[in-house]
Design a protein around this nucleic acid. Sequence first.
DNA 1: CAACAATATTTGTATAGACAAATGTATGTC
DNA 2: GACATACATTTGTCTATACAAATATTGTTG
Lengths: 148, 148
Amino acid sequence: MNVEEIIKTSRPLPLAPRTIIHMALVQNKIEDSMGNALKPFEVSTQQFNVLRILRGQKGQPANLFTLNERMVTKMSNTTRLVDKLMAKGLVNRTQCPSNRRKVEITITEAGEAALEQMDRAVTGAQDKLLEKFVEKDLEQLNELLDKF
Amino acid sequence: MNVEEIIKTSRPLPLAPRTIIHMALVQNKIEDSMGNALKPFEVSTQQFNVLRILRGQKGQPANLFTLNERMVTKMSNTTRLVDKLMAKGLVNRTQCPSNRRKVEITITEAGEAALEQMDRAVTGAQDKLLEKFVEKDLEQLNELLDKF
DNA sequence: CAACAATATTTGTATAGACAAATGTATGTC
DNA sequence: GACATACATTTGTCTATACAAATATTGTTG
């Protein structure tokens, strides 16, 4: 990935702005790749993320606050995101009996099954994205990202 | 930035998915910071990006194709993005006389003046984001990002 | 226990972006 | 010069997201 070529700029960029732009370009590529992997399942990366969180709950229900807290990209409207997963039959939503303000969201069996397929697709996409990285590169990259 | 803490996961993540999530988290932070820097000017990062491209043209007008080509994040509706910059008086749009299919977009003086202020704000935000990086780190990060 | 504050979610609304179809203009071919 | 094709932009429409206000429930305090 050559930054200057992609944004068609003639002059070389100073290192700091180049890094920021580089990050954006790579993130675009990652989102594109993940989106394509999930396209057959008609779920967004956000929805996929929620399904994974719910599976991680191991049967224990999650409420909207918990979901929002654990999402990679927090968003203001988790209600409607869950609505869409409900409409697809991938999750259940019930009112919490002990505190009726809360909702209890769980993944359905259909959701678990679909998620397994999605996982395969996404893992494949990620492996492809990272194919040029050796273990040491990934460690180094994670260390550098920690500096942000 | 500790990935596991931010997404409140108990188990440590395998390196590959951790990297992907890490990238997303950092990018969120970058966008947030840039967005805040630009908030006083009421322009999006995309709009800011277009203004910079126009300045880079040094008086020469750009058409929508050129803008789209040079934008960091390509988007499907450059027309309406330029509309918004027009409404703010930051750019001019005229029909290209030699090829009336094309439009000629230029930055106005007000646009140049505003952009200078924005640049200061954005550069400040970027320096803050990168304050923990030394030159060598940035070089290393750019090299690693090239592997995507 | 009434009044008020805090919590959890939902809803309304405004704006941004994706995608496809429509419009207007230019170019090449017979 | 009429016709098809390619090009450049615009428009319509649908979905996604952000933000604020509204609703419902629970907890707290005098």
